[in-house]
Write a protein that binds this DNA or RNA. Structure first.
Length: 758
RNA sequence: GCGGAUGUGGUGAAAUUGGUAUACACGCUAGACUUAGGAUCUAGUGCCGCAAGGCGUGGAGGUUCAAGUCCUCUCAUCCGCACCA
């Protein structure tokens, strides 16, 4: 058989399309598999990262289909977002037009790769039907107290003209455009993700078997739970007077209560209420005020460069010793963690030590190592034995912590508390191409929800996009509406939602059979059947953002009564990047390989084969043009040697004992490949070794000329690499076996017995 | 600084539980066929050495009959977090 890739691929793509071969069955008694690759943003064209992502997912989907499972393998478009607006600003294209044109083009690209998606379940998150249900959830969440608005200092990107969530600030810069993020005070809507801090952390345990450890660790660190002592520090009389008796005290948090006798100063964040009060009431010398203002205005990167602070010339009383402790302002104290104030123990904390050295503050050691001496020129930050610590002398750090916290508690001085680094998720964006928040501002009723029957609150299409300000706010009529409660004139909220909201529930929407799409977002029975996603495949860059938000949303949906699932993704496979010349492929570096050109030249099967053969999926993949060529040659050979097999609709039965040595060796390799394929799909996911096994089998078959052995070999091989090389395998298997071989073959142990006679 | 990962031929990589290190492929060398070959096929290809032989999984130790795999230390690279009190 001569190998004409485009002919074979067109033929079978047409066949699959006409036969709707990849639609899941709506029979919920069958064994299911839900295979999902992260859906793409419709940027215009596919890149190699997409090809890798969808090839991996497709391999799983096709494997499980052969294994008789009912497979849900959907695709859609994460289609809201700023690039659409940026294109509008740059080229004058309407964001909607730009987006849906891109989707049409990229859909055809995906189809040419032979990916076995359910076509009927495809949607874009910018579809009004999707927005409608999403806005419904927002209303539910608001009513359940899981959403609120507040004014605060927010991360603002000047370039994108919008706020960013904490997770979207990378190294002090915007995650999308790398512009340094500045702080801006504005009103913002938040999801109360912190209500789920503990559950999001604890449920990571449930994912231990299915998720990469690295991702679990990253999420754990991001949630950042720490347990410690919170207590008040009271001002002395003179300080209270100085503060016009406006403040009595402030509270601090420490995870090292065992070091409390070593406190020699304490420090407030420059943004702390007491500092603000002192500034506003001119209680500080001019040069000190100036210094504080400078600290507050410094970028987060500058602020980290070196420790700086100023004394406030006020003091608090040590809660245990009664000693007087000076209060400073320090640039390293974070306002948004704990209470924005810390007790400083320079002898046992690196930061406090550096600061004390800088400003000549006293350093008092109270913990000594179990063995050896205290270091002379740095802080001793490990645990040890307490000394100069009153009644707690001689105790080990660990046991003293409990006792000290208990002492604070019973004497009403403070209490044990748990702090999280995780912050609430700010979701308002001051942009056009996003899902509008379904909120209305009424002069009489305040903030009210749009009525559910009026959803969706859709975007206006006659819009002017200039890059200046929020286009919805500038629209002549859109924001004027009636209050949903009292009917009076009111104003719509013009902020749209973070696009991560849409990707937080799209995998739930896919479970809905298209027949119910218009009535509801999804159906509980269908969710129960399909969720969780058995294999979720995507880039490691989503380790925190998307994967944390999606977990949060799943728990919220559960608590709103929509579903019974705790965790959305049973198994997560994080694919490695596609590199060329040692660096990530990118347009700016000019080292991209265009998937279309690759498919044009060699066909989709070659592209798929190479991409799975070159490296295990979790590792980086270095592009190599001649190795692509090699993959193509293998397929040509595979097509050509199929002439050695004969047509049959049952697997040949072979008397193994009667075979020659090379014939036995060939069968041995074939069945080894079969065993390995089963293992690879079930556990190891190292498709490169599966392919190597198939190549070995081909090489071994080539060493002999028994037609039965060849036929058996093709029966098995064309079935096990069908998930990877689908078009050619369907062609070969159709010609030879009427595709009767597309179901798992039995592993015959006899072929593995070592033949001692020859 | 903290956390995680990775180090194997010229290259991408394999070795699943400690059991023949380098499977499979790329590249390279030689040959066959050919008007020609960037097609196809055959043979070879870890390093040193004419050979016998020796040496080889970042480095140094250790456990073991046996170590790429386990333990200790160390070096390098990559990734994530980064003043979280």
């Amino acid at each position: 058989m001569e190998y004409k890739a485009s002919e074979v691929e067109n033929k079978w793509q047409k066949f699959w399309e006409e036969n709707e071969s990849f639609e899941p069955k709506e029979d919920y008694t069958l064994d299911k598999k839900y295979i999902l690759s992260m859906f793409p943003f419709p940027s215009g064209r596919l890149h190699m990262g997409h090809v890798r992502n969808y090839t991996i997912g497709d391999a799983f989907a096709r494997f499980y289909r052969q294994a008789g499972k009912n497979v849900l393998h959907p695709i859609g478009w994460d289609s809201f977002g700023m690039p659409a607006e940026n294109a509008a600003i740059k080229n004058g294209a309407h964001p909607k037009q730009w987006t849906y044109d891109n989707i049409d083009y990229m859909r055809s690209e995906l189809s040419r790769l032979g990916l076995s998606f359910s076509k009927k379940r495809e949607f874009a998150t910018s579809d009004e039907l999707y927005t409608k249900f999403e806005q419904g959830f927002i209303i539910d969440m608001y009513e359940k107290g899981l959403m609120y608005s507040k004014t605060g200092l927010l991360n603002w990107c000047e370039n994108d003209q919008t706020v960013l969530a904490n997770e979207q600030v990378v190294d002090g810069c915007c995650w999308r455009c790398d512009t340094p993020v500045v702080k801006k005070e504005m009103n913002q809507y938040y999801f109360k993700i912190t209500d789920y801090s503990d559950e999001l952390l604890n449920d990571l345990n449930k994912l231990e078997d299915g998720w990469p450890k690295q991702v679990l660790t990253m999420q754990e660190n991001w949630i950042g739970k720490s347990t410690g002592l919170e207590f008040d520090l009271h001002f002395d009389a003179a300080s209270k007077t100085k503060l016009n008796n406006a403040f009595e005290k402030f509270d601090v948090f420490t995870t090292r209560p065992d070091t409390i006798y070593g406190v020699s100063y304490c420090a407030l964040a420059p943004e702390h209420d007491i500092v603000t009060y002192m500034l506003e009431n001119n209680l500080l010398p001019n040069e000190v005020s100036a210094e504080i203002k400078k600290m507050k205005n410094a970028s987060s990167i500058d602020r980290q460069k070196e420790k700086a602070g100023v004394p406030l010339n006020i003091s608090v009383v040590h809660p245990l010793t009664g000693a007087s402790i000076p209060v400073w302002i320090a640039n390293f104290v974070l306002m948004d963690y704990g209470s924005g104030a810390v007790m400083a123990v320079p002898a046992h904390d690196d930061r406090d030590y550096d600061f004390a050295k800088e400003y000549n503050l006293p350093i008092k050691s109270v913990i000594k190592p179990k063995k050896g001496e205290l270091p002379i020129d740095k802080a001793f930050t490990e645990t040890g034995i307490l000394f100069d610590s009153g009644e707690f002398d001689g105790l080990k750090s660990k046991e003293s912590q409990g006792k000290i916290m208990h002492h604070f508690d019973t004497n009403g001085l403070g209490k044990k508390v748990i702090n999280f680094k995780l912050k609430d998720w700010g979701v308002s964006r001051q942009r056009y191409w996003g899902a509008p928040l379904p909120f209305i501002h009424c002069e009489d009723c305040g903030l009210v929800m749009e009525k559910k029957e009026n959803l969706p609150v859709a975007l206006p299409e006659d819009i002017e996009i200039t890059g200046e300000g929020n286009p919805l706010d500038h629209h002549p009529t859109w924001k004027y509406c009636k209050c949903s409660q009292c009917g009076k004139d009111a104003i719509r909220e013009t902020d749209t939602m973070d696009t991560f909201v849409q990707s937080s529930w799209y995998f739930l929407r896919y479970t809905a059979s298209p027949s119910i799409w218009k009535e509801k977002a999804f159906d509980k029975k269908e969710l129960d059947y399909w969720m969780g996603v058995d294999h979720y495949i995507g880039g490691i860059e989503h380790a925190i953002l998307h994967l944390l938000y999606a977990r949060f949303f799943t728990k919220v949906m559960r608590d709103l009564g929509y579903i019974n699932t705790d965790e959305p993704f049973n198994h997560l496979l994080t694919q490695g990047m596609v590199l060329k010349d040692g660096t990530k492929m990118s347009k700016s570096k000019g080292n991209t390989v265009d998937p279309d050109a690759l498919v044009e030249k060699y066909g989709a099967d070659t592209a798929r084969l190479f991409i799975l053969f070159a490296a295990p999926p979790t590792q980086e993949l270095e592009w190599n043009d001649s190795a692509v060529e090699g993959a193509f040659k293998f397929l040509k050979r595979f097509a050509d040697r199929s002439k050695n097999a004969y047509e049959t609709e049952i697997i040949p039965s072979i008397n193994h004992g009667m075979l020659s040595k090379t014939e036995k060796a060939a069968r041995n390799k074939v069945y080894e490949a079969l065993e390995r394929a089963n293992e690879v799909f079930a556990e190891r996911h190292t498709f490169n070794t599966l392919i190597a096994g198939v190549m070995e089998a081909m090489n071994a078959l080539n060493e002999q000329d028994n037609a039965d052995v060849w036929t058996e070999g093709y029966w098995i091989i064309s079935s096990i690499i069908e998930p990877i090389v689908p078009h050619l395998c369907w062609e070969v298997a159709d010609k030879l076996f009427k595709r009767k071989n597309f179901s798992p073959a039995e592993v015959l142990q006899e072929v593995f017995t070592v033949d001692t006679l020859c």
